[in-house]
Write a protein that binds this DNA or RNA. Structure first.
Lengths: 153, 153
DNA sequence: TGAGGTATGTCAAAATGCTGACATGGAGAA
DNA sequence: TTCTCCATGTCAGCATTTTGACATACCTCA
């Protein structure tokens, strides 16, 4: 009952392991595992690191904005933020001056921890990048972006 | 304190959102969300579907083998298997004839559910693939594979 | 025969994430 | 102004997943 149209499945996958989805899942799992491992030495989890990195890029982000940036729910990010705040890595005003959103900022200690962890994370990224021909990297980045967009990510 | 070596970071990322890791995470999150949505209509979760697909490809896989194939722990896959078994979608012998591993198989009902869900999943995959130039697809698959391997996935 | 190593299945506990729900604050239309 | 709509922060409950641990079964080697 399959309509074999070369337009739909031009890659002619033999089985599931050759599907883009499976490969994507596999690569993501490998990355997640590698990051978990190196970040543990810095006392950070992947969501925590993501949060710090986002705040370094754009200080003052709210909980909801951070959640969208890290691809988790507001509730999950809220837990992460509480943890980071308890550890003194980020700071949020006790009261919001405009809406309900309270802008978060890295503390000096948070910046130090991020800097330390960053080198470890970048080493993983470098290891990953080294596996693909450097000429293809820009296309790879573009394709990942397009796929995410096509699925409403 | 950064050593700028073009060999290490040849893509000259401006910020985190241009890193391969971030894009990978984003694409994976988008895929996961899309799959969650379409699979819910078939009464399946993503891990459950993954498990069924693996069993269709290679019947008789054990719990531990399925766990490795789906990139989760044995414990997690065990929960998934129990659920599928309770729903009558898979069957496992009550006792192992060789080691401790009990080979799992799809039931006719499991095969039907898989067939039904597959079309929905493939539609998502097609939507994702359509976003990337078809000439680049083989390279994309290869690069994802290489990256996963490089990180010990 | 027995010891050591490896792989598996399973239990218990904790961490993590999500869904549902509700109250608050702000912007815009009636 | 008042009403409506939307985004945000937060609480509670539930589901999922992981970590840690242990017992069992097989294999290999002495």
């Amino acid at each position: 009952m399959e309509n074999r149209e070369p337009v739909d499945l031009p890659h002619a996958a033999q089985d599931v392991t050759e599907h883009v989805g499976y490969r994507l899942k596999r690569a993501h799992a490998a990355l997640r595992g590698a990051l978990d491992q190196v970040l543990r030495e810095h006392g950070l989890t992947v969501p925590q690191y993501s949060c710090l990195e986002l705040l370094a890029l754009r200080p003052g982000l709210s909980n909801a904005e951070l959640a969208r940036g890290a691809f988790v729910t507001r509730q999950s990010m809220n837990v992460v933020l509480r943890g980071l705040q308890d550890d003194g890595l980020i700071a949020r005003p006790a009261t919001a001056d405009h809406g309900r959103a309270r802008p978060a900022h890295l503390t000096p200690e948070g910046q130090r921890r991020l800097d330390a962890a960053r080198s470890a994370v970048y080493a993983v990224e470098t290891r990953m990048i080294a596996a693909v021909p450097s000429a293809r990297l820009p296309a790879l980045l573009a394709d990942l972006e397009r796929m995410a967009e096509a699925l409403g990510g």
